[in-house]
Design a protein around this nucleic acid. Structure first.
Lengths: 344, 344
DNA sequence: TTTTAGCACTCTAGCCTTTAGAGTGCTAAT
DNA sequence: ATTAGCACTCTAAAGGCTAGAGTGCTAAAA
């Protein structure tokens, strides 16, 4: 599997481009015609033989055209599309859309998912910014109609959690506010995790609240990602390779099921130190459900404070250039927005 | 289309049951065999002719078995499965699951969606409780890293909104807290919508914040529903009638696209006064995207304070009995939980 | 009057066969 | 090194055939 000649790389690119476009095996004559190549189909055939022997192309059957192998896609992605950028007009359009939603964080996530899905016509996911070791920023206790209290917790990084607390007997809103302020004052900026939550300065009620806060923070820190926003799931159903097959269901199920998604994210972007875009092609031998799929992922945010993940999932026959540049661009955009707004 | 005899109703029920099970046209002999009927296939055939003439059954082609028509399903749903209840053991299992998540409101929504999807093997949706005329309960202002402020708004009904506020110059957290408390005190329990947001008791900064709060509340009140939780989208892809067809995509797209979903909800459950379960069969002539689908919907919560919607979407060939009783049961369960926890 | 056995008829899904044509690999000429 | 020419391969689409599931009708039985 040595180095390829320039012409071989060129033909590999064309085969991939044409296959992504048409979803049909690509023949030598087709390629010459469609791209007005300055050589004969026989020459293209010879190069195709070389690319096939190198493991970058394969034939569905003896007398058919070529389609890219997983290795073919990998070669293409790693050496040929890394540097491409999203066209400037599209960049401006997207930036403008984000500007219009500049006041609403949740809307950023939804918009990011929508942009990713539309730009590359695949399924997309965005996780809300999340810190693996958040500290307390603010606590609020709000009385409800019943004998219950709504607890609102703001963590550094900007995450907001709410939880319900059942009281043995009603407590007035004034007392609740007082308790919340007391705890906020004492524990602001700390990671109240699990242990060491007894404090003789606190009333019995405050002690209980503190225990719950501690539990919630521990639970939150254990998570790999924040809330998940999906979009464009129906896009991938339109792809011919997924027409009615089991494969599509399994891949989308991976996105629907939080635990599966956490596994995917924790073993990829979150393990890698670099902030670049990562491309998983064909499940990489680890995820059976993604054998027919590719995933393009990137992290955004401020490492240490709060980060999120975004990316797209589609068939292996995916417009990688477009997908990668879109993911990179949106990740940078979200990073800027979120870093500016980070609660610390 | 007069009244049906008891035996005709019985046979209609069997045909629907068998067709839902097998997804194949149902023949007279099949029915006699499988359900050990006490009559001959000829008798069944005669009744089938009557049911076909009445418009409740049809034949895909001359010499095939029968399948239910839309009208057939409607007749079945309106007169024969209304009263059925979810089996007690399943009720207990579900109640137990909800008990385990009793502290986390968001988790209720996710669990409700999950239960609906699993029990009837279809796609499900749940919208968070939402009030059409919420009032202010509490306002919080939190300084961020940049020159921006995170505004957290708690409304009656328990909805929480966050928004970003860009400052011309930094303001200390103390001043922010003071401003938030001031506004909370003055406007708590009010619906600050659009007009009349000038108040000489407020500083210029507080005036700005108040304007934003007003805008956000107006925006929130205009929405038909709260956040949307989906589950089981991949379930419906397994159905044979949706294998690779355009239909499945269009139906699921309706759930993905917020605006389409709002239209659906606003014209159905939200228009109907009764609190019962509503069944839409085959798009009811209004929703082209649902021509092959049925939707079972119900409202939950406390009318006037805050309500949400939940339901399932699947192929018209759907286990209506199971779907309806599950939707009704989960709606009642969520109503109890949410009403108890309602912030007012 | 209602039910049922019997029977001729209909229509599809599945299977086979055939065939057009897109594509290949090889060889020999350029 | 490239390319024209050609025999060969394989699939996907089209046509023909058949088994069998299911019907509607009629006339006998209950």
């Amino acid at each position: 599997m040595g180095e390829l000649s320039e012409r071989q790389k060129f033909i590999l690119t064309l085969v991939i481009h044409e296959y992504v476009r048409s979803a049909q095996p690509v023949g030598s004559q087709t390629l010459v015609d469609r791209y007005a190549l300055d050589m004969s189909s026989a020459t293209v055939r010879n190069e195709m033989v070389a690319l096939t022997e190198a493991g970058y192309l394969r034939q569905p059957h003896t007398s058919a055209g070529r389609i890219p192998t997983e290795e073919g896609y990998r070669y293409f992605v790693s050496r040929m599309v890394r540097q491409s950028e999203l066209p400037a007009p599209i960049q401006r359009t997207i930036s403008h859309q984000f500007y219009q939603t500049r006041h609403d964080i949740e809307e950023w996530m939804r918009l990011a998912a929508s942009v990713l899905a539309h730009q590359s016509r695949v399924a997309s996911l965005v996780t809300a910014p999340h810190s693996e070791q958040a500290r307390l920023k603010h606590l609020e206790l709000i009385s409800t109609r019943g004998r219950q209290v709504l607890m609102v917790l703001v963590l550094t990084g900007g995450e907001i959690h709410q939880q319900i607390l059942a009281l043995p007997e009603p407590i007035s809103q004034d007392k609740l506010t007082e308790a919340a302020n007391h705890i906020t004052q004492l524990y602001q900026g700390q990671d109240i995790n699990g242990t060491n939550v007894s404090n003789s300065n606190l009333s019995a009620f405050e002690q209980v609240v503190l225990g719950l806060v501690s539990g919630l923070m521990g639970q939150s820190n254990a998570l790999v990602a924040g809330e998940v926003y999906l979009d464009g799931l129906t896009n991938v159903l339109a792809e011919p390779e997924f027409a009615g097959s089991e494969e599509a269901r399994r891949a989308l199920h991976l996105l629907e099921e939080r635990s599966l998604l956490e596994d995917l994210l924790s073993r990829t972007v979150l393990r890698s130190p670099a902030s670049g875009v990562q491309v998983l092609i064909g499940g990489e031998g680890t995820w059976d459900d993604l054998r027919q799929c590719s995933v393009v992922l990137a992290r955004y945010g401020t490492p240490g404070l709060a980060t999120g993940t975004l990316g797209v999932l589609g068939p292996m026959r995916m417009p990688y250039g477009r997908a990668i540049s879109t993911v990179r661009f949106v990740a940078n955009l979200l990073s800027d927005l979120v870093t500016e707004t980070m609660v610390e």
